[in-house]
Design a protein around this nucleic acid. Sequence first.
DNA 1: TCGCTATTGGCACTTAGTGTCATTATTGTG
DNA 2: CACAATAATGACACTAAGTGCCAATAGCGA
Lengths: 208, 208
Amino acid sequence: MSRTIRDGAHIEVARSAARLFLKKGVADTSGDEIAEAAGISKRTLWRYFRTKESCVEPLFALTSQRFATRLGNWPLDISVERFLEINYDFSKMEKQELEDSALVVHLIAGLEEEPALLEPWFMSTRMTEELMAGVIASRLDLSLKDFEVRLCAATVAAAMRIIDETVSRAAVKYGQVPTLAEINDRLAQAIRRASTLPFCDPVTPRPR
Amino acid sequence: MSRTIRDGAHIEVARSAARLFLKKGVADTSGDEIAEAAGISKRTLWRYFRTKESCVEPLFALTSQRFATRLGNWPLDISVERFLEINYDFSKMEKQELEDSALVVHLIAGLEEEPALLEPWFMSTRMTEELMAGVIASRLDLSLKDFEVRLCAATVAAAMRIIDETVSRAAVKYGQVPTLAEINDRLAQAIRRASTLPFCDPVTPRPR
DNA sequence: TCGCTATTGGCACTTAGTGTCATTATTGTG
DNA sequence: CACAATAATGACACTAAGTGCCAATAGCGA
């Protein structure tokens, strides 16, 4: 029917932005430079992203946020560990995935030195929280707005954020990126640890 | 020896900013307007605050963040509930405190409609988390950087944030502000619920 | 191929925010 | 009280982030 934004357009800008931020810092990277590096006009850059800092949001979305998105496919009748065991092919990542992982790990590890990036990072955590609220509400047949659901989603998302931060800092410090399996394992543990509701195990659907 | 910034200067700007944000929205409030309402120059406004949105941070600091600050005075040998019971005079608030509470409640209740204020709100939660990490590390004689401390502080701070949000939305919806006692009670409960470490009860100092 | 629709880029513009410097106000000391 | 030292303040020029507008362009389906 009509023209659409090219697949991958946003993530490509995010990669350019991330490289520049890591190389020269956020403050010393201009919107002009990001647009040029990404091969788009400045006007389009500001259409794609609300602020300079939020240019890296697509990369932050590859963290626990993506994990939470996948939990949207979690059947009611198995535990979180079992779901991950069955569903995740931990075979070798593509080259592009490796590069994206390295970029996001370095961004997260450097958050203390770049507080300007805390906003997009928190926006990512907030999305994780919304996604987890959906998962929890669905499994326990509760409303998305239920206080207990919101509380549980918040503690779980916070725990997942700490895992991401801890793993990223260690990766940069020790020069090695943990495997996807290891990260998923830690995230699953974090979910159990931080849960204020019993949603990690198989649940029986309630008759309607 | 030399001139200092007047006590209350920041909170007064925050009040002006909050009133304007609530009245006309963040986007339609200019830095000029905030500075004028606060009786300072624009140059000084930008000395006081890093961004327009962060002008309300002093008000957000009056929430669970302040509660966490007070927990810094919590003796090792009593539980969190006991500490609050002994230490908090829930007598009538001053007029200014009431006004500040109303402002911050309305800001928090309106966060869904004003995503621009999420950044200062998250910065407040982050400070709460740092404060709680200090409390937890101190009570359990662990390092501030310990993973378990960080995890526990993150889940607790997230839970406290949810309480603040829930209470604020209810207050605006039902037109009544809960008492300070009620809020403190809920925050204490949230701390217990979300804790991944046993720091809420009396602890025995370890011999050094 | 064509019509429709959304995307894009160029450009003018506004606002948020920074650098600079002279002026002003606070503070401590004699 | 006077004075010196110091930091805060305001005015102004400026830059960069971000917005509005409109013509040109490109993608999509029939």
